[in-house]
Computed example of a mutant assay.
Amino acid sequence: MSLPREILTALEQVRELLQNVGKSVEPRSLRDVIRYYIETPGKLLRPILLLTFSYSLDRKSIFETKIIQAAAIVELLHIVSLLQDDVMDKHDERRGVKTPRALYGDGRSIVASDWIIAESIKRALQLGPEVVEYLADVAQRLSIGQALDLDGEYKKAAEFKTAPLIEATLVLPIILLGRRELFDTATKLGRLLGILYQYSDDYSDEKREKDDMVNIAIEIKKMLMKLKSTLGETFTPFERLIKGIIEKALEGTLTPSRSFIS
């Protein structure tokens, strides 16, 4: 799916910011794990969501340092979740590529995730205490999701394992751009998108019925209509992105997909 040129330009700025993360860390054995998923990036779904939603709120905002930084932070926290998930589920491969735990061991993967969490906190401090507090809550909910997943509580885990960080991609722009009147709507939409993403992942692993995703998709479309009535035509790129995500989720091609942009 295509995105406005401004969003793609901002996304490149996020990539450049991420490319400098951990470059000077010693020892080399730790640096290699920290940078592994940075140097082999996935879809960058979370930065794309954050930038596109920011564009809908204020088209000029996506070039602001605070928005670029927020997009980098959500991707760093996503990398943390990948490193930890690899260890807990004993993944030797992810999307056909060797995982850090397979190459460097479980211990280094956990230590690397700790380093990236600390780096994320440092960056979040630049955005203010409210952002730090919110992201701390996100991290706690992600931990609950992982614990529920380990307990085999897959339905409950769907609300925590992926949803909080995708929710953050909509809530952070609300906080940073001062659009408090949209906080509740953005929070709910972000959470629903996260649940849809987790359901899609589970569906590809044959743990989830497609009807669950259809019901979530209906709720997401209702939220999109509500936001569009407020934001008008500037909301179109985000609406188009979300509808594309829904389509891929229902096809079963969302999580295996390597890219969302053309």
Results as ranks from 00 to 15, higher is better:
residue 225 M to N: 13
residue 172 L to A: 02
residue 110 I to V: 15
residue 209 E to G: 12
residue 147 A to K: 09
residue 246 I to M: 11
residue 195 I to M: 15
residue 120 S to T: 11
residue 147 A to F: 07
residue 200 S to N: 11
residue 190 G to Y: 03
residue 73 I to S: 05
residue 161 K to M: 01
residue 141 R to F: 08
residue 229 S to V: 12
residue 87 V to K: 01
residue 150 L to F: 14
residue 144 I to P: 01
residue 94 R to W: 04
residue 35 R to G: 03
residue 107 G to H: 11
residue 28 R to I: 10
residue 176 L to G: 03
residue 186 A to F: 04
residue 172 L to G: 00
residue 128 G to P: 09
residue 220 I to H: 10
residue 70 A to I: 13
residue 4 P to C: 13
residue 241 L to G: 01
residue 128 G to E: 08
residue 107 G to L: 09
residue 251 E to M: 12
residue 140 Q to P: 02
residue 31 R to Y: 02
residue 182 L to D: 06
residue 5 R to H: 15
residue 172 L to D: 00
residue 224 L to H: 08
residue 191 R to L: 10
residue 249 A to H: 10
residue 166 I to E: 05
residue 207 K to V: 11
residue 140 Q to Y: 10
residue 24 S to P: 03
residue 56 S to D: 04
residue 67 I to Q: 09
residue 156 K to Y: 05
residue 69 Q to H: 11
residue 169 T to A: 12
residue 8 L to F: 03
residue 224 L to V: 12
residue 147 A to M: 11
residue 163 A to R: 04
residue 200 S to R: 09
residue 26 E to T: 06
residue 23 K to R: 15
residue 5 R to S: 15
residue 165 L to P: 08
residue 36 Y to W: 06
residue 186 A to S: 03
residue 235 F to T: 01
residue 260 F to V: 05
residue 37 Y to V: 09
residue 167 E to D: 07
residue 149 D to P: 04
residue 143 S to I: 08
residue 141 R to N: 13
residue 164 P to W: 05
residue 133 E to N: 15
residue 22 G to D: 00
residue 25 V to M: 05
residue 10 A to L: 07
residue 26 E to P: 01
residue 148 L to H: 02
residue 232 G to C: 00
residue 48 I to Q: 03
residue 76 L to M: 15
residue 248 K to S: 08
residue 196 L to E: 06
residue 13 Q to K: 09
residue 261 I to K: 00
residue 9 T to Y: 08
residue 211 D to N: 13
residue 135 L to Q: 09
residue 31 R to C: 05
residue 21 V to G: 09
residue 118 A to I: 14
residue 69 Q to I: 12
residue 210 K to C: 06
residue 206 E to S: 14
residue 4 P to H: 12
residue 231 L to V: 02
residue 127 L to C: 15
residue 58 D to T: 06
residue 207 K to T: 10
residue 11 L to S: 02
residue 15 R to G: 02
residue 137 D to S: 13
residue 119 E to R: 11
residue 225 M to H: 12
residue 259 S to W: 05
residue 130 E to C: 08
residue 29 S to D: 07
residue 97 V to N: 11
residue 150 L to M: 14
residue 92 D to V: 12
